[in-house]
Design a protein around this nucleic acid. Structure first.
Lengths: 319, 319
DNA sequence: ATGAAAGCGCTAACAC
DNA sequence: GTGTTAGCGCTTTCAT
């Protein structure tokens, strides 16, 4: 039950703790001594205490990642990118899911701070920004994902471009009356709608009709209200894709003939179902975010990625 | 840049570090002193160092969770259950994704051990069991999910029952010739097939025809080979659901008329697509796993959950 | 009610 | 090369 410490190893090998420490960290030690120490460590089942190491270093080597919604494919790919970079720099990753609850977000940021993470990657509301700023001042690099608040590192998507990409594709497919389901109060989604509107108007098409929802429950009614006057439904967030798609198919509507459908973020079922999407380079975004944590640039980096369209036919065929 | 320590707070409040510590942990302190200390902590922006606390306690309060595949809905629900219980006991959760790579699994278990996690919940291959046992001996409660190796806590599904549930439903739907796509070398899936076989034979139906695959790439061919002689395809793991479904629909087959389809684990798109599944109570399993970590029962607990069938028509309609 | 001081497991100067 | 020793930030007796 009592943990094996460096002292036990030292005693077993007949050397001092300092020597053991040197062996473990690749300092200058005689071959024979090193061998004895390794053997002792092995036979005692020694496992170094990362906590004590960190306390000495002033911070741990762990990278903290706060995710709003693990069930979203975007975040999964983001995490994959982060994991990749973190593994390369030998940093454990501490992932926390906040389930989009503001109180949990705040609590998780605080927890990560207290764990003295080496850096923090945050996907959260504006409310977390001030906490992040305080951490940054204390020397913990914080990267905000999907938004780009001033004074902090950020990795985000060109959301306006995403909207314009949607508009271009819809125009190519000969769609003209566009209904939009969008999340309430989401700056990201507001920009996407702005881009969409701009792109449509620019092409001489009517402005999109927008309806805002808070969560899944409201989607069916929202979609219903859009169907009267539109031939296409656009969804500005991957999170609502399932609900919107369900609302459509539940009414017996077939894509693209009865209704056009275009949404954000690629996901595994999209290709089987033939759903066209505007995708974010999530994996790359994750990599960059992690790199910012590792490299700690002195001035806040604001990295913006470009979206891409993946046409699969749910809006009809292009030009 | 220099972190505020308990000493700074003490100096600022004109008391000793011991007193600050007592205030922070709710010891016996005079109201007025406590107030001064809180104020000092506040104004200095003090954030307690969880690392040093843990080193003193001998272990951290963090619960480690090692997941094979974050993209699987089963694990997402499992995590939700874990998070819920962990939050209630004020334990941060450290999540690690291993992407089904044995080397990463081993590395993550080791990392968690070195972080001195309070307990560990593992979804991994047999290869990790010995590491887990060693940790358990050192006083770190380890819970294995989805398998139940001797000597360790475990939370798993009655896989044979899952197979039998499948057989029963298929029989109800009048299916008789069943092809099975299953993962190679997965004890869990072997049991499911056993249950399926037993259930079918018991009802006087022919044995299922099984084909083993390693990963997604092989699924299409596997499914193709099953279609000649069968009217139904069963998939024994949620991980392959997309690929199997794609292989089916890509051939223009409609469910349930052209082909029956039954798979494991519920997922968001299943209801929209009308896919019948045998589901695991993932959320509850997560809760129990976390509870085992928190409660640290002295003798290994082996908890087995029962699967449920969710019929949605992809095999036709039941009796 | 409060302070002084020892010590948690480990690292890093500084001696020898 | 290797040992001694002083901390890292915090908690916890033991005095006062």
């Amino acid at each position: 039950m009592k943990r094996v410490t460096i002292g036990d190893v030292a005693a077993h090998a007949g050397v001092s703790t300092a020597t053991v420490s040197r062996v473990l960290n690749g300092g200058l030690v005689a071959e024979s001594t090193a061998a004895r120490v390794w053997e002792a460590a092995e036979s005692l089942g020694y496992s170094p205490n990362a906590l004590t190491r960190s306390i000495f270093a002033g911070r741990s080597s762990t990278i903290g990642v706060i995710i709003r919604d693990l069930s979203s494919p975007f975040y999964l790919d983001l995490i994959r990118g982060i994991d990749e970079v973190a593994a390369a720099s030998d940093s454990p990753v501490m992932l926390a899911n906040t389930y989009r609850r503001a109180d949990r977000e705040a609590a998780q940021v605080r927890a990560m701070d207290q764990q003295r993470v080496r850096g923090l990657i945050i996907t959260a509301d504006e409310t977390a920004d001030s906490q992040a700023r305080r951490m940054a001042e204390n020397g913990t690099p914080c990267v905000i994902v999907a938004r780009n608040p001033p004074g902090l590192h950020s990795v985000s998507l060109d959301d306006v471009a995403a909207g314009e990409l949607m508009a271009a594709h819809l125009a190519d497919c000969g769609r003209s009356r566009v209904g939009v389901v969008s999340g309430r109060n989401r700056p990201t989604q507001v920009k996407r709608v702005t881009g969409l509107r701009h792109g449509l108007v620019e092409r001489g098409l009517p402005e999109p009709e927008e309806v805002l929802v808070e969560n899944e429950d409201e989607v069916d009614a929202a979609v219903g209200s859009l169907l009267h006057r539109n031939d296409t439904v656009v969804c500005t967030t991957g999170r609502l894709t399932v609900s919107v798609h369900t609302a459509l198919t539940a009414r017996g509507l077939k894509m693209p003939d009865d209704i056009g459908f275009l949404t954000m973020d690629d996901f595994p079922w999209a290709s089987t179902l033939g759903i066209s999407v505007v995708a974010q380079p999530a994996y790359e975004m994750g990599r960059r975010a992690a790199e910012l944590v590792v490299e700690e640039p002195a001035v806040p980096a604001r990295i913006v990625f470009q979206p891409t369209l993946i046409a699969r036919g749910s809006c009809g065929s292009g030009v």
